[in-house]
Computed example of a mutant assay.
Amino acid sequence: MVATNFQKAVDHVLASEGGYVDHPQDPGGATNLGITRATLGRFRGREVSKAEVRALGLTEATAIYRQDYWRAVQADALPSGVDFVVFDCAVNSGPRRAILILQEALGVSRDGLIGPVTLRAAGTTEPTALIERYSALRLAFLGRLPTASVFGNGWRKRIAAVQRNALAMASSAAPDPLSSKNEEYGQMGNLRTILLSRPIWANLVGLASIMLSLAGLDTTGLDTAGFSDALLQVIAGGSFIASSVLQLRRRNT
């Protein structure tokens, strides 16, 4: 769940939406920065003119995106990449439709409301597969609309771009499966270096000899160097066996 995806998602939406348009066959009517006249009027709490839509600034548009779309689909609670596809669909087709498609993609009850069941299913589903299924279902929904013959080509291009960017988000957010293993290998390597250090063991054996002498034991005949070498051979053999077993276990997991 990556809250910082919001600005990135808005940037991608703005790249698709562009500036002011007022297409006669677009049911949304006058639109600027992806914000329709009705949406802007709802945000301001009053009816607005086309001129006000045309004059809409980026700061207010971003605030509308956050309140009316990002938060409406609880995007901050969705996995990275999934949050973007749902958000973009909400902008294009409304939050309820975006949630319905998500629920269909997840195979949960479709009520158009994001609750714990939907969020849990989204959080436990592999993001890449979910993004691809969501995009296919969204495209199928748009293809059934009466205006598909007019806007269909643009919708297909948009959804392809959204899917591509969403997959990139999901990929960058995914933890490196080797990172923890590499860290463990690094720690093991450091420990192995210490254990196989001849000076360290020689000093330890020498210290042990002194302690035994202080305890009244005769250590004059003790070959500390030979004893240190013998210890190193035992440790090296044990280290090799442990390392081999660990590598075999990791390959099988």
Score class of each variant (00 low, 15 high):
12 H>Y: 12
229 D>Q: 10
7 Q>Y: 08
223 D>T: 03
197 S>K: 06
96 R>W: 01
38 A>E: 13
80 S>W: 06
87 F>T: 11
201 W>S: 10
148 A>E: 07
143 G>D: 14
1 M>N: 10
53 V>E: 05
93 S>M: 04
28 G>D: 05
234 V>K: 08
32 N>F: 03
50 K>G: 14
226 G>F: 03
202 A>E: 15
63 A>E: 13
195 L>N: 05
56 L>A: 08
122 A>F: 09
114 I>P: 01
37 R>Q: 14
58 L>K: 15
58 L>A: 15
58 L>P: 14
227 F>D: 03
104 E>N: 05
79 P>D: 03
119 L>H: 00
7 Q>A: 13
112 G>K: 04
54 R>C: 01
216 G>A: 01
154 G>M: 04
99 I>G: 01
99 I>M: 02
66 R>Y: 14
208 A>P: 05
16 S>G: 07
181 K>Q: 11
78 L>V: 10
20 Y>F: 15
244 S>I: 03
200 I>Q: 15
95 P>H: 03
19 G>P: 12
127 P>K: 01
61 A>T: 12
148 A>Y: 04
21 V>W: 00
42 R>G: 10
38 A>V: 07
21 V>L: 10
228 S>Q: 06
104 E>M: 05
16 S>D: 10
123 G>W: 00
51 A>T: 13
247 Q>D: 12
181 K>M: 07
141 F>T: 10
40 L>T: 12
99 I>S: 01
3 A>Y: 04
25 Q>K: 12
14 L>F: 04
121 A>R: 00
16 S>L: 06
44 R>Y: 11
55 A>Y: 03
226 G>W: 03
110 R>M: 11
241 I>V: 12
83 D>P: 11
200 I>S: 04
45 G>V: 04
72 A>Y: 04
103 Q>V: 06
144 R>W: 00
45 G>Y: 08
63 A>P: 02
245 V>T: 09
234 V>G: 01
39 T>G: 03
87 F>H: 02
19 G>R: 15
206 G>L: 03
193 T>A: 15
107 G>Q: 01
15 A>W: 05
126 E>Q: 06
152 G>D: 07
8 K>H: 09
80 S>F: 01
58 L>C: 02
89 C>A: 15
7 Q>H: 15
179 S>W: 01
177 P>Y: 00
226 G>N: 11
111 D>T: 10
171 S>Q: 14
241 I>K: 02
172 S>Q: 13
143 G>K: 09
98 A>Q: 04
209 S>W: 00
31 T>R: 05
23 H>I: 06
38 A>T: 11
50 K>S: 08
250 R>G: 01
170 A>R: 04
62 T>D: 13
81 G>E: 05
122 A>E: 08
16 S>M: 05
52 E>P: 02
136 A>T: 13
209 S>V: 08
102 L>D: 07
183 E>G: 10
178 L>M: 14
215 A>M: 12
250 R>K: 05
77 A>R: 07
94 G>A: 00
108 V>F: 00
35 I>C: 09
145 L>E: 10
20 Y>S: 03
115 G>P: 05
242 A>S: 12
24 P>M: 00
17 E>D: 10
137 L>D: 06
16 S>P: 01
77 A>E: 03
217 L>I: 10
158 R>W: 09
211 M>R: 13
107 G>S: 00
218 D>A: 06
1 M>K: 09
18 G>A: 14
206 G>R: 01
118 T>A: 00
93 S>Y: 00
66 R>W: 07
201 W>A: 08
113 L>V: 13
144 R>H: 03
240 F>Q: 15
